[in-house]
Design a protein around this nucleic acid. Structure first.
Lengths: 201, 201, 201, 201
DNA sequence: AATGAATGAGGTTTCATTCAT
DNA sequence: TATGAATGAAACCTCATTCAT
């Protein structure tokens, strides 16, 4: 029974908890993007993260928790990108709005299987409607800024943002499902613009 | 060891396949409404329909097939009610629109666990975007009539209806999730009205 | 509602996979011997092995795989016993032959339900005709040695051994089925001896 | 609801029980030959016999009963053919023996999936070892005649025939499984001839 | 006698989750 | 802290057999 030399195979990688958790989330993103929620089990994620199955539960209470973490990570990253794009003062709110709508639709389409995993399913229901870290929250921040700047009508931010997110999300769904890309985008633009334009409710 | 009551398991009920199928769908509606999609298995449905487990598979290839059937039934019934309400000529399109929006939101809220079962999950993805038998199709018919009557703006019916359904559906979700009922409804009304009003895209 | 005794379900026994697999095979032997292939389900085996049903499929892809494993184990054990008996040089091939024939028939009769399970049914067809690990292979080795020693006629080893196995197997079947033990054994001896004696085909 | 005219579709064929039974057996033969025992369910047989599933149990107590009936039919038909071939007095018993051996092996090989269905599986065990209607019984009759004619050695007919059937059956199995046809046949001939030749047991 | 819907046990499988090591 | 074997609750689905019509 050969004893394993101490240096052989630095397996059993001892990582800082935060780091390990981050690796699991990243692994889940990879697997979910490629295979979707149904082709992705706990074991697939731990395998992709090169750790043991049981280790998963050290970092996530349940599978759904992972999904929430993945979604948070995704949204945070996207929020970061938005922040960078909209760094300076916005001169043309309507052009910016149209641009961001198209970007967000395209972004969702690029998510592949991740889209179903985090925007349908249990992760979807795990957030308060007014959570600023969520996708609706992100939209809400943009809308609020536009309203404050006098560019958009004075809508009720929280519910309106939530519903506009449903529109953007539905748009990606429809396109992914086979609907005509340009037509869906046009309808989406119309809905969002008309909502933020115009007179009082 | 519980003794089986004499009346339990009376006789084998031989039904016409259509009738049996209807009973299974009805039973599923009952169970799903009460318990939601989780906590509801094939056996729960067959038990509620007072038939044997194996019988399920004579009528539905998979669980998802049942969900689709339940949704179709629900939508058909709702469509029937709408048809009756809107039987005569519509004089005030905007009032009717507001009324139907509120009704539809309330209807979804009343669905209980059924809502999750048929509007989230697999049943949701089993329909073409332009299926007239679907909820978006129902909305589409109303919008198309309003457009034809010159009351609504000439929107692109199919994608717009699909997206407006997302709004109505999201509204029910938000309220069910705890958001303020009146605020969500107000925001919903604003989005739908502004979309159907106004100038060109 | 039987209360569960405190000692029942002691602890989770974590075994080396090889060991667990061995236990499952051993449990299957016990259950099959007593109850035969019908009246023995996956669950019976896992219960007898004091493990969980789902664990079965970590070790055997299908039920038939288990049967093959059981048969292999049985044959290997029997082969071991033969090897020990026939360790030294054989002086009287014919007496040894007669002896081994009787032993093999008796052995099969002792198998009880195991006999049906591994020599009829699917396990039977999972082996190449010239597999040395099989019962015919065992017979073949003996016959080949006798031929090499000049004691037996120069028969075609592989097919002849396979067919003689059918005879020995059939003999056990017949006796188990109620035929006269001595008569069947006598007929068996005659067939095998005459086959290995005598001139060219 | 159109009432069905009296002459429309002479379905619900009312057959004499014997006739119906015969049709079921014939249908089973067809289906089993093509698809083997695993691709053949009660429903497949009744469908092939153009009758209702439930009707099956009017004629056969269980599925295994059908298998036995199929086997009996097969053997009876084969026995008939043998009787015709061996109608007159036999002059060369050894040549006839060889001929019949080859025919029987070929016959079994031609059975396709029927072979497994009736010679493996439950039908196999449903016969007394000395049943004259069985394949061993058929062999027994031939051997007995040869013995009576002084051509074959005075073997113990019943067990010997049973065991020789195992040899012939095993030969077909081996060939079907991929063994060399000529070699297996040669070995079979040797075993049978040597058994029936020669001196006392 | 004929029909085919109904029954229900049970084989097969999957996996989130737990826990001994 | 890491590991992966073990657990067990479902889920799926099939089919021989029964029986109301």
């Amino acid at each position: 029974m050969a004893t394993r030399s101490r240096s052989e195979r630095a397996t059993r990688r001892r990582l800082h908890p935060d780091e390990r958790r981050r690796e699991l989330v990243a692994a889940a993103e990879r697997v979910l993007r490629r295979h979707g929620p149904d082709g992705c089990r706990v074991e697939d994620v731990t395998a992709a993260a090169a750790t043991a199955k049981g280790n998963f539960y050290r970092y996530f209470k349940t599978w759904d928790d992972l999904l929430v973490a993945v979604r948070d990570h995704l949204v945070a990253r996207y929020a970061e990108a938005v922040r960078e794009r909209l760094d300076g003062p916005i001169t043309d709110w309507w052009a910016t709005l149209d641009d961001e709508i198209d970007r967000f639709i395209s972004y969702q389409l690029d998510l592949g299987g991740l889209h179903d995993a985090v925007f349908h399913g249990p992760a979807e229901r795990a957030r308060a409607i007014d959570d600023p870290q969520s996708a609706p929250g992100l939209i809400g921040a943009f809308v609020a800024a536009g309203v404050a700047d006098g560019a958009f009508a004075a809508v009720d931010i929280v519910p309106t943002s939530y519903l506009l997110f449903q529109v953007l999300h539905g748009a990606a769904d429809a396109i992914a499902f086979g609907a005509d890309d340009a037509a869906v985008r046009a309808a989406t633009h119309r809905i969002v613009r008309h909502t933020l334009e115009g007179g009082p409710s």
